[in-house]
Amino acid sequence: MESLKFHFTPVDAARPNAVNPHAQPTTDRPEAVAMLRDAFGDGVTGDETYAGETTVFVAKGRIAEALQRLHADGYSYLADLGGLDRFTEDDRYEVFYNVCDLHRGRRLRVKTRVDESDLHLPSATGVYRSANWFEREVFDMFGLVFDGHEDLRRMFMPEDFQYYPLRKEFPLLGIPGSLPLPGHLPGEDLSYDPFPAASSPTPKSFQEPEVSGE
């Protein structure tokens, strides 16, 4: 009998000279990188082009100014903004901004990294109004605080929820006793998420097999 094996998707390292057959010239933007480097010097911490798409890394203290500069240059539309947990020792969180120039057909990705010791970064709502709800979502899911956001409340989770669910250490099934449910009858006490409480004390996501070091 064949023994079962658990297969993981291999992790792709970025290949510098990779060719993306679907890449469009709209996303390859060396001149935007040069423009930001001129304007901010050390504020631009790096750039990379992968599969024909340009990404600029900006120091988090200057991200609002950098976006302001790009906005003035014609990138007038913030298509997307999100966070991710890189789960590393330093610069644990990353926030990305996808900006578009609708008139000249250009796209650029800007990224900034936030360390766990200081979760504050400047808000982009002063530059792009569409950043409002995106930043609320990032705050809800990762606990990053956007300074200057006028209404930084939780987006999806109840406002008195105490955890940040998309951080890697948060168990998939939730934390027992953290989310109230209405009782069966009117006036009955709230019950507290019966499902994670009924499972074993170790969250299931901690019991899953891990990637072996390769």
């Binding site: 999806f156 989770m157 669910p165 948060f170 168990p171 998939l172 099934l173 939730g174 934390i175 989310l179 449910l181 209405p182 009782g183 069966h184 019950s191 998420d193 019966p194 499902f195 994670p196």
Partner: peptide, 16 residues
């Protein structure tokens, strides 16, 4: 709860 076996979804509306 179906395929949404995660923290944000009530695992069956018969809980309330």
């Amino acid at each position: 709860g179906g395929m949404h076996r995660c923290y944000g979804v009530v695992q069956g509306c018969d809980n309330f």
